[in-house]
Nucleic acid binder design. Structure first.
Lengths: 333, 333
DNA sequence: TTGAAAGCGTTACCAA
DNA sequence: TTGGTAACGCTTTCAA
C-alpha cells in the first residue's frame, strides 16, 4: 500500500508547533509589525522543516490580491544566441527586483484568446515579444490586473509600453552599405520559413527605403533554409544579374554563400554578400562574412522599465527605439 | 482622474446577469451535471463578454486542489535549434493533452531552494532538464502535490522518472569513428564556457570509453568559444602530434577548423575533425563537417509519459534512454 | 505575544 | 432550473 502524502499546509505546521496559523504566518514571513518570542519562532521553523512545508503561491496571491509574476509568452521559433542572451539577462535582472519570470507556452492560441489565457494567471506584468498583441489584448490584460504591458517588437500598441525593435533599421543599414560599395542590383533574401515574416518584411522594407530614389534595383529572393533551395537559387544566379545580396541573417547568408561558390560565383567580386546578427560563425567563412551587428537593449534597462511601470501604472506608456544596427564589414562585401 | 478598473469577478458577472455566482460558474464551465436554460445562458455570456471577465486561475486551482500546470525550469544556457525544436514539440503535445506549460526562470537559485520555489506553484508535473535536482528536491515536489517529476539529463534521480540523455554515447560514437578511420592520437575539445560541463564531461568520457584498451591516446583540449582561443590551440598544433579531434559540437568544430586551416593544417589529411549536433551550417564548410547526429525523443512521447505519470502517480518511475547518436560522415574525417 | 475570524475568487454539494 | 453555502490555503485585522 502506497502512502500518498498529503501536502502540508500552514495549519499542519501550526498544529505540530502548537501555535495558531497566524503565528506560523508571522514567523515564516518575518512580519516585522509583530514580535514573536524566540522559542516560538524556533518551534515553528522546526515544524515547517520537519513537514517539508512549502507555501502555496496561489493561495498567497489570491489573498494578497496581486503577485510578482512577470509573464512572457514563450517565442515559438527557435531563438538565436543574441536574443536568448538578452532573455537571460532580463530574467536575472527581474529576479534581482524580486519578480518571478514565467514563460508561458502559448501553443495554438491566437490574439485575444492568447491574451485571455495569460490574463488568467493574473501576472503583474506581461512582456510580449513579436506582434501578437492588439489593443484589445492589452485591455484584457490591464483589466485583469496587469500593471504593465510591454511589447518587444516592430510596432507599438495603444496603452502598452513598447520596446521598438525596428528591423527596418537592419535592412536600411545593409542596403546603404551595399550601395556605398558601388552595388546597384541588389537581392534581398526572404526566408520561406513561416514565423519569420515579422522580421523579414521589415528588413526588406528597410532595404527598399535605403535605396528609394537611387538608381539601384531591389529583388526579393525567396529562400528556404535547405541546401536544395539555395542551390536552386544559385543555379539561376548569373541570369539574375544581381551584384549584391542582403541575406536576411548570417545563417541564410552562409547557406547562400556556399551555394554561390559551388556555382563558381565569386564573393565578393561577382556578388557582395551581407548577413545580419553578427554570429561568431560568420567570421569563420572564407571570405569572412560581412554582417549587420544588432544591439539589443540591456536586460537591466528593460527590467527597470517594467519595475517603474509596475510602481506607477498610470504613467504614460513609454516607447523606446531599442534596436541599434551597424554594419560590420568583413570580406564578403 | 484616471479610472482604475477593478478586475471583474464572477460575482460581477452574476450581478450584471441577475443570477447567482453558481449559475455563472455552471454556464461558463459548461457543467454537464446541470441544465441551465438557454436565455439564462445567453445573459451570462453576454455579461461576461461585456465586463471582459477572465477567470482567476489561482482561485480556480485553489478550489480544485490541483492544476494542469507543467513546470519546466528555463534552461540558463542558450539552447540550439535541436533542443528548442524538441521543447516546442513538447509544449504543443502537452497543450493537446490540456496541460499548460510554464517555463520558470530560476535565476541564482540552487538545488533544493530551486525545488521549493517550483513547488510553490503547485504544478501537477515538473520537467527538469539537466542535473540540477536531487532526491531531496524530488521529495519536496512530490510532497507539494506534483504527480510527476521527470528529469531530462545525464542521470536518474530516485523517485523521479528519467529520460536519460546519455551524452557518453555521443562521445563514444565519435571516438569509435575516428579510431575506425585509422586515427590514434585523438584530441577532445572541452569548452571553457561554464554551464557546458554537464555535456562536455560525458562526451569526453564516452570517447575515453570507446578507446579504452586500444592503442589510441586521448588528449583534452580546453577551448573557449573565441577566435583567439582557437588560434592559440592551432598554433601549437603540430607539436601536439594529434591526428584527430572530436570538437564537442559543430560550432566548436567550425571554430577550430578555420583556425587549423589558417595554420596550414589540412583537414582531414593532417587531422580528422568531427563535431556533434548535425547543424545545417556544418554541411556548408569546406571540407563538409562530419558530425554526430543526435536523436532526441519526440515531444509527443514525453508528453504521453507525463500524462501517464500524472494519471497514475504510484506507478514505478520509468527510466528511458532517449538519446540516439549516430555518425554522419562527410568530408572532414 | 498569540489567537479567532474574515475574506481573496472559485466550484460543488445540497436545497429549493 | 437555480441559489445559498462551504471550502480550498493564506494573510491580516482586531481582540484578548
Amino acid at each position: 500500500m502506497v502512502q500518498i502524502p498529503n501536502t502540508p499546509t500552514s495549519a499542519d505546521v501550526a498544529r505540530l508547533a502548537g501555535v495558531s496559523r497566524a503565528t506560523v504566518s508571522y514567523v515564516l514571513n518575518n512580519t516585522s509589525a509583530v514580535r514573536i518570542s524566540e522559542p516560538t519562532r524556533r518551534r515553528v521553523h522546526e515544524a515547517a522543516r520537519e513537514l517539508g512545508y512549502v507555501p502555496h503561491a496561489a493561495a498567497r496571491s489570491l489573498r494578497a490580491g496581486h503577485s510578482r509574476m512577470v509573464l512572457m509568452p514563450a517565442p515559438a521559433i527557435p531563438v538565436g544566441p543574441l536574443y536568448s542572451g538578452f532573455l537571460n539577462e532580463l530574467q536575472w535582472a527581474l529576479g534581482r527586483l524580486d519578480y518571478t519570470v514565467v514563460q508561458y507556452g502559448t501553443v495554438g492560441l491566437q490574439g485575444d484568446e492568447a491574451a485571455r489565457a495569460w490574463a488568467e494567471l493574473r501576472p503583474v506584468a506581461v512582456l510580449v515579444p513579436g506582434a501578437d498583441l492588439g489593443p484589445q489584448g492589452v485591455g484584457v490584460l490591464k483589466r485583469s490586473g496587469a500593471r504593465a504591458v510591454v511589447t518587444l517588437g516592430p510596432g507599438s500598441v495603444d496603452g502598452a509600453h513598447a520596446l521598438l525593435m525596428d528591423h527596418d533599421a537592419v535592412g536600411h543599414c545593409a542596403g546603404a552599405h551595399l550601395y556605398a560599395r558601388g552595388r546597384r542590383r541588389i537581392g534581398v533574401v526572404v526566408p520561406e520559413e513561416s514565423g519569420l515574416e515579422a522580421y523579414s518584411r521589415p528588413r526588406l522594407a528597410g532595404v527598399l527605403q535605403a535605396l528609394r530614389g537611387t538608381d539601384a534595383t531591389v529583388t526579393e529572393l525567396p529562400l528556404a533554409y535547405t541546401e536544395e533551395s539555395a542551390a536552386r537559387l544559385a543555379v539561376r544566379w548569373r541570369e539574375s544579374g544581381l551584384d549584391a545580396v542582403f541575406a536576411y541573417n548570417d545563417e541564410y547568408a552562409m547557406l547562400l554563400m556556399r551555394a554561390l561558390q559551388d556555382e563558381g560565383v565569386r564573393v565578393p567580386e561577382d556578388v557582395a554578400l551581407i548577413g545580419a546578427d553578427d554570429l561568431m560563425l560568420g567570421r569563420l567563412l572564407r571570405p569572412r562574412l560581412s554582417t549587420v551587428h544588432i544591439d539589443l537593449p540591456s536586460g537591466r534597462d528593460l527590467a527597470e522599465l517594467v519595475d517603474r511601470a509596475v510602481r506607477d501604472p498610470s504613467g504614460e506608456p513609454e516607447v523606446h527605439k531599442v534596436l541599434g544596427a551597424s554594419v560590420v564589414r568583413r570580406e564578403s562585401s
